[in-house]
Write a protein that binds this DNA or RNA. Structure first.
Lengths: 376, 376
DNA sequence: CCATACCGCTTAATCGATTTAGTAGAACCT
DNA sequence: AGGTTCTACTAAATCGATTAAGCGGTATGG
């Protein structure tokens, strides 16, 4: 399955011609690797015949350095640049008790939803000079209690939870995206579920759909319960009946469309009578559409499907997905931004909840209701 | 569902009676948040009336602790557990010059390809107790030189580059996934491009396709050039002509199907004569299929499309994608594994190249060639 | 009987920075 | 002249761990 093309053992350049020089000639010439010994504050100070203190305060532009004449400062900056001085972040963090690092807990990187949020987080944090650790618990309980500990051992300054329910009180400022957790010290960035459901159901209703199938999320998915409750409530208000036999339920911890495909297959096997499906998210909508297609049922001709999230793929899927958009990127940004603000201020107050407005994006996967499928 | 353990709003505790004691009685007694002061080695040692050294060596099970009697050890472990001692990772790292952290450079998290690789990396690293920083340069040159520096300042022990070309020699063990870089100190995990192209072209040829359109990757994508060269070479060998007017070229730095949609639209506007398309990757295949569909051209009925990568979405797209699979997860694992091995050994040798075997996955998007489209 | 080894620890140096406190000398003020 | 302030720095403590070296006392070996 794999070959080891070259045993490029560095100490014995087997064949002379294939070695570095060629690359070197084209690129910058003097980039050596071996002798690049790291110079620390001590070495720098010694080089300048100054104390570490002086060098440190000057380089940090501390107010203490006000009394130091400009030419000394210049000398210091000059020498620092010349010797390539890079302060050791560990040492600095240890002393200052600031790491400029946050921890991000996510179920799993990779399936549109979390990665889009991560993108927003990344954008915001990196602009602020923060780095972050990502860890994927996969809803394994032992990881869920272990990872926050590990992150705290690593001295992260705060935590961001993505689609992750967590019940212990943490001594660190935290922000949770999705899945409202009513826990001390955490700010929740949550979608306005009511609005979201109203948009979806309103859309379907206006197209004449009455027999609508609903897909519930996995029990561990932090939005599942609230979404479902809201569907029941709003459904009642809008006079849309929620039939138990038209309810699907995701179970597997899978982040591809395979999550819904078998569920939909089983569902269809019972020959249900419905004209539309409100999927749990876009991924599961895609899986469901695939299952429908494999039974010869066309979307939206026979069945309309509404997704949720508006991941990148939604727009380009065939049929493109009508979906309730969550501004995922922005949610990530807001989460990170909020956390940074909390970190910045000594103040222990914090906002408990930040509500995000969803938006309906109408595309191809929904159409006017025809006759409900009864017998396939 | 929730208690306000402590009126965290520090300035105005609204109601006095709802404070800690109540919660304390029900739950584990010591789960307080405010006074949970971190106990360090010093405090622990003081508590035990022992020196920090003793405590440290015992807790680390250092051989030096051999001479310490078991009951002292027990006392120490017991006290450590009881006081919730957590060693400070910064201090330890500073002293031991080991951070158990690596840096991952990626163009952008989120579009199937990198996130699948990240998944493999994550799996391997977390099993080994390593954490990682992810940074997205978006092919912005200033970030490309700045981020490795920043990561090194943060004392990462090694670097992993994903789809990122980098030409400077780094003083750190590095692994590059995709995009062979002939640079000192980096191990390259690369697909066997020749095999990949043979698979794709062989498949198309066997279906009777002769006029095949090719899509080239963006100039900054590290596989672009090698893939293209290989296509030209293998095409010649297999007697498949590569027509300049049947060549598309991605340009934008976009990680959604929007990357190829407009390109395909423009391409079609010229009414080219072809029966198949070999896309640069699955994402761009999806965008292209969408563009075709919007012109009323059906895949695979009118045109066959071969993707590349086999991202999760490929299997569930309509039509599902015939594609050249890269074992992305495994590539991530291999990259991380290789890096860890290099970190573990004092040895400065390293493998220069690890080749990965692609695989052809035949699905719905390819079919026997019909007549070439000439006029739409 | 002296040398060595082990036992069960402790002292102090170290990692590489930041930061508090201080100091010698010059300048300024009254 | 004496006191204060300013200038241009430095010494040493500190962050929280690891680790080399050492130490008094008993046991063992030659």
């Amino acid at each position: 399955m794999r070959h080891w093309r070259v045993a490029g053992k560095s100490n014995k350049p087997i064949s002379s011609p294939t070695t570095a020089p060629k690359a070197n000639k084209t690129a910058a010439p003097a980039r050596r690797i071996e002798p690049r010994k790291v110079v620390g504050l001590k070495a720098l100070a010694a080089h300048l015949s100054l104390s570490q203190t002086t060098v440190s305060v000057v380089l940090n532009e501390s107010p203490v350095a006000d009394s130091i004449p400009q030419d000394t400062k210049d000398r210091i900056f000059e020498a620092a640049r010349e010797l390539g001085y890079r302060p050791n972040f560990l040492a600095r963090s240890l002393r200052k008790q600031r790491t400029f690092t946050v921890g991000v807990l996510v179920n799993q990187i990779g399936d549109g939803y979390p990665s889009k949020i991560l993108l927003g987080i990344e954008e915001c944090l990196s602009a602020a000079g923060y780095f972050y650790f990502v860890v994927s618990h996969r809803h394994r309980p032992e990881r869920l209690i272990r990872y926050p500990q590990l992150l705290m051992e690593r001295s992260v300054e705060g935590l961001i939870f993505i689609d992750t329910t967590f019940n212990d009180v943490l001594p660190l400022p935290s922000v949770a995206v999705s899945g409202h957790q009513n826990v001390e010290n955490v700010t929740n960035v949550v979608l306005d579920h009511r609005k979201a459901v109203e948009l979806a159901l309103g859309h379907l209703k206006s197209l004449g759909h009455r027999r609508i199938a609903f897909m519930r999320g996995q029990p561990f998915s932090s939005d599942s319960e609230e979404r479902w409750e809201t569907i029941c409530r709003v459904g009642a208000e809008m006079n849309i009946e929620i039939h138990p036999e038209l309810t699907l339920r995701l179970e597997d911890d899978v982040s591809t469309p395979a999550v819904s495909y078998p569920v939909m297959q089983r569902f269809l096997a019972a020959r249900p009578c419905f004209t539309a499906l409100f999927a749990y998210n876009d991924i599961s909508a895609i899986g469901a559409i695939r299952a429908l297609a494999d039974q010869g049922i066309r979307v939206p001709h026979d069945i309309s499907v509404v997704g949720f999230d508006d991941i990148d793929a939604a727009e380009f899927h065939t049929p493109s997905l009508t979906t309730v958009r969550q501004p995922l990127f922005k949610m990530g940004e807001i989460a990170a931004q909020t956390l940074l603000e909390r970190l910045g201020s000594a103040n222990r107050d914090y906002v408990r909840t930040i509500a995000i407005e969803p938006e309906l994006v109408v595309r191809e996967s929904t159409a006017i209701a025809r006759r409900a499928l009864e017998k396939l």
